[in-house]
Simulated assay, not measured.
Amino acid sequence: MCGAVAWTCSGVVTRNLVCHCADCQRATSAPFTAFLGLRSEHVNWSGEIVHYESSPGTFRGFCPSCGTRLYFRSDRWPSEIHVHAATLTDPGEYQPDAQVFMPSRAKWLDRLPSVPAHDGFQQAPADLPVVEPLKT
């Protein structure tokens, strides 16, 4: 987001997925995460990265300046790093090959095609019912 961290890759993509697992939902505060699996040794980073160990052996990298989530890596896949597709130069060109952890998929995503779409905020904030916060 702030440009303090960048990455390049000299290898092939090993995974190209949209993940709906509950861990990704909590870690990104989003209904799903799109990522590219890359061989760790083929990825070069510039800038400072801070890591958070979200579960034993699983680390999530982020920019300490703006907090942008960059990737996750896990001891379960020691030779891979899973870079968030939103960090691509043109994330709109991202084309996933599959979706995983479908049982955790947010049910409201099914409604999106029928929800009105706008180019920006369409109106002043409305008074909506109070929603209980999620405990993380």
Rank of each mutant, 00 (worst) to 15 (best):
A6D: 14
A6W: 03
W7F: 15
T8D: 08
G11A: 05
V12N: 05
V13H: 01
T14R: 04
T14A: 04
R15E: 13
R15P: 01
N16L: 09
N16P: 03
L17W: 02
C19I: 03
C19Y: 00
C19Q: 00
H20A: 04
H20R: 02
C21M: 07
A22S: 13
C24I: 02
Q25C: 06
R26M: 09
R26C: 01
A27Q: 12
S29K: 08
S29V: 08
S29D: 13
P31Y: 06
T33I: 02
F35L: 12
E41H: 01
H42Q: 12
H42C: 09
H42E: 05
V43E: 04
V43I: 10
W45I: 10
W45F: 15
S46H: 09
E48G: 05
I49E: 01
V50W: 00
V50Y: 03
H51D: 10
Y52I: 07
Y52G: 01
Y52E: 02
P56C: 00
G57S: 09
G57Q: 07
G57R: 08
G57T: 08
G57W: 05
T58F: 02
F59P: 00
F59N: 01
R60G: 01
G61R: 01
F62R: 09
F62N: 04
C63D: 04
G67R: 01
R69S: 14
L70V: 08
Y71Q: 02
Y71I: 03
F72C: 02
R73I: 00
S74F: 02
D75F: 05
D75K: 13
D75C: 10
W77M: 12
W77Q: 09
P78N: 05
P78T: 06
P78Y: 06
H82R: 10
V83E: 06
H84I: 02
T89L: 07
E93D: 12
E93A: 15
Y94N: 05
Y94V: 10
P96A: 05
D97S: 14
A98W: 06
F101E: 03
F101L: 03
F101T: 02
F101N: 07
M102D: 12
S104M: 07
A106R: 14
W108N: 09
L109H: 09
D110K: 13
R111D: 15
R111H: 11
L112T: 11
P113V: 08
V115N: 06
A117C: 12
H118K: 11
H118N: 11
H118G: 06
G120F: 11
F121A: 14
Q122S: 15
Q123S: 15
Q123L: 07
A124I: 08
D127N: 13
P129E: 10
P129C: 12
V131N: 07
V131L: 15
E132W: 09
P133T: 11
P133Q: 12
L134G: 13
